[in-house]
Design a binder for these strands. Structure first.
Length: 599
RNA sequence: GGAGCUGUCGUUCAGCGGUUUAGGACACGUGCCUGUCACGCACGAGAUCGAGGGUUCGAAUCCCUUCAGCUCCGCCA
């Protein structure tokens, strides 16, 4: 901050509050800021003056300057003041080691109230204890706290490093429309009525996807955007209806090129902002590996607890559930917990009900007791052979616990994935200071939507299938993998991208499989398909969730902590009270009539 | 759409059928105080107990409904 100190010298002040140290002693300074605290000792008044850089103590002594002392009596918390004074070294017994400016203070010779303040609704120092609702209502004040100053400045730094990095890698920053076209695939759109085109609507972009790609068709080679995206879906701790992506697209690239570039960017962010190196390249897992080993397509690799497949052991088991599952094409999978003596019967019951609510029929546990005997609700059904195989395959020791889920592959994996995360918290396996990045690739191209009875893109409809299994495109689309990749940090998906289709016939074939009929495809994506008719280079890209990334870098528990004016879970901005009613005339101009709202 | 948790002075907590006139701490106001930095001391003001309905002689407290916030499921290509 000190290197910018000069920048903050203005007509009002000589510099910042938080940077004044011993070197300044004897100098006259003029400072501006908010009153953080006033301590009135009758004949002596202390004020903690605050700006974003920190706090400095101002002393008002009537024997030194009566006039400023008198004004200081009127001062209250959060008043904005300007003061002139001499920087004085403190006597050794009055030094405050807790603040950077604690070795000095400013003896005031002038004081001016620039703006008064009502008593603030909450104290800035104990922000963590204040209800979030109150903080969001008075966000103007919440944003003054060191926490919010730090969070938003951190985000700004990440954006700045990103711009520099991408620009120096040949990227062009190009804006694309916010008033864009609605597309039925994907998330729900926010719509904007068009006054000049009655009964027609724009949609706010869910991402600049198609514009990015068209800019590749146009020969820009590499473009990026720090793009605001809008999705009208329900909110979560890490999801807001509008959020920001570092969104980029590159021409003539393979997946490895995009991954390498992003690794470079993340590494740069760590060196410049976190101040530490990060191991490159990141670990890579195929989607299938991630699902079968960790039960998640965004596994947290800060702890191990891998999932084992023990189907082989139970092929002809007496335990009917296990055998039947296997015979029906399912799997038997488990997680082994070592030294699990601490798990009570209640803990195990909790895990069972967790498994059930996650979609499994149930969960079997087996404990190894002191005599190396296997304890379990089903122990009497387990053959000696099965017991021995379990002990051998899983190298079981005294006090080990295994948690078994047998079901369809995806169900048993994802249920154990949820339990894996639960165990890590319970066992305290997570090192909060660690950052574990990884790539997930080789996703399936499609998934089958039971409700709509059709295939859906796992990533999006413009994702390039893996040419190695193109043959299944017609016969068994679920077997086709895609050239797409997600980047995961500590169990959170922070970005995803793909190599895109650059072949019109293939693109139309994909739409056919998605049962987007050609007529509708033309309606929604016609501009894009016809753009593809004029020379489409191979290209690919990725988007990183900026807010999520910054949230994780700052070790924060919600995305709202890195957004200046976020919305509540019901998508309301508490400060501006938005959304709100609009004037009848505004609606008239837009040819919109309100329908009475009913439950 | 569903599940769970929360809602009491400005803030944060206590009170969980009856001497409660709803209590403490911080903040706030007034007075005193020349070395504090979580300043101290004294006095004071401040609450339709989220809202509505019910049970009861009596409800902040029990029941129902509802609203709001948060977490999660569904949803988020």
């Amino acid at each position: 901050m000190t290197e910018f100190d000069n920048v903050f010298k203005t007509g009002y002040r000589t510099g910042l509050c938080g940077v004044i140290i011993r070197d300044y002693s004897g100098k006259e300074v003029v400072l501006c800021g908010w009153v953080s605290k006033r301590r009135d000792h009758g004949k002596l008044i202390f004020i903690d003056l605050r700006d974003f850089s920190g706090i400095v103590q101002i002393v008002f002594d009537p024997s030194f300057n009566m006039e400023s002392y008198e004004i200081a009596k009127e001062i209250r918390s959060e008043y904005v003041i300007q003061t002139r004074g001499i920087v004085k070294e403190r006597t050794s017994d009055t030094i405050n080691k807790d603040i950077r400016t604690g070795e000095i203070e400013v003896l005031a010779s002038e004081l001016k109230i620039l703006s008064k303040s009502k008593t603030p609704p909450f104290l800035l120092e104990n922000r963590e204890e204040i209800d979030e609702l109150t903080r969001l209502k008075y966000r103007n004040i919440d944003l003054r706290t060191v926490e919010m100053q730090r969070n938003l400045r951190l985000k700004s730094s990440v954006m700045n490093v990103t711009r520099n990095y991408l620009t120096s890698n040949g990227f062009v920053e190009i804006e694309t429309p916010i008033l864009a076209k609605s597309t039925p695939e994907g998330a729900r759109d926010f719509l904007v009525p068009s006054r000049l085109n009655p009964n027609k609507f724009y949609a706010l972009p869910q991402s600049p996807q198609l514009f990015k790609q068209i800019l590749m068709f146009s020969g820009f080679d590499r473009i990026f955007q720090i793009a605001r995206c809008f999705r009208d879906e329900d909110l979560r701790a890490d999801r807001q209806p509008e959020f920001t992506q570092i969104d980029l697209e590159m021409t003539f690239v393979k997946q490895e090129d995009v991954m390498g570039l992003i690794e470079g960017l993340i590494s740069e962010i760590f060196i410049k902002i976190i101040g530490s190196e990060i191991n490159l390249p990141f670990e890579k897992l195929t989607w299938l590996e991630a699902m079968s080993l960790y039960g998640s397509d965004k596994p947290d690799l800060r702890f191990d607890l891998k999932i084992n497949d023990i189907s082989e052991i139970f092929k002809s088991s007496e335990v009917k559930i296990l055998k039947d599952t296997i015979n029906n094409g399912g799997v038997v999978k488990c997680i082994k917990v070592e030294n699990a003596g601490m798990f009570s019967r209640k803990d195990l019951d909790d895990i069972v009900s967790m498994a059930k609510s996650a979609g499994a029929g149930g969960l079997l546990w087996i404990k190894v007791d002191e005599n190396c005997e296997l304890q379990s609700p089903v122990s009497k059904f387990l053959s000696e052979n099965e017991k021995n195989n379990l002990i051998r395959v899983l190298s079981l020791k005294v006090n080990d616990l295994i948690l078994i889920v047998s079901d369809k592959f995806t169900t048993s994996c994802s249920v154990l994935g949820i339990i894996r995360n639960h165990l890590a918290v319970k066992l305290g396996l997570i090192n909060k200071d660690e950052y574990k990045f990884l790539w997930i690739y080789d996703f399936p191209l499609f998934e089958f939507d039971e409700k709509e009875n059709r295939y859906k893109s796992v990533h999006h409809a413009f994702t390039m299938p893996d040419e190695n299994n193109l043959e299944y495109l017609k016969s068994d689309p679920l077997k086709v993998n895609s050239l797409s990749y997600d980047i995961v940090l500590n169990g959170t998906e922070i970005g995803g991208g793909s190599i895109r289709i650059n072949n019109l016939e293939l693109q139309e074939q994909i739409f056919k499989i998605l049962k987007v009929d050609l007529e509708r495809a033309k309606d929604n994506f016609g501009f894009f398909l016809s753009a593809m008719e004029y020379g489409t280079p191979p290209h690919g890209g990725i988007a990183l969730g900026l807010d999520r990334l910054v949230m994780l870098l700052g070790k924060l528990k919600s995305i709202r902590e890195v957004i200046a004016f976020p919305k509540t879970q019901s998508a309301i901005d508490m400060m501006t009270e938005t959304p709100s009613n609009v004037d009848e005339n505004q609606l008239k101009e837009l040819y919109i009539k309100l329908v009475k709202f009913e439950e």
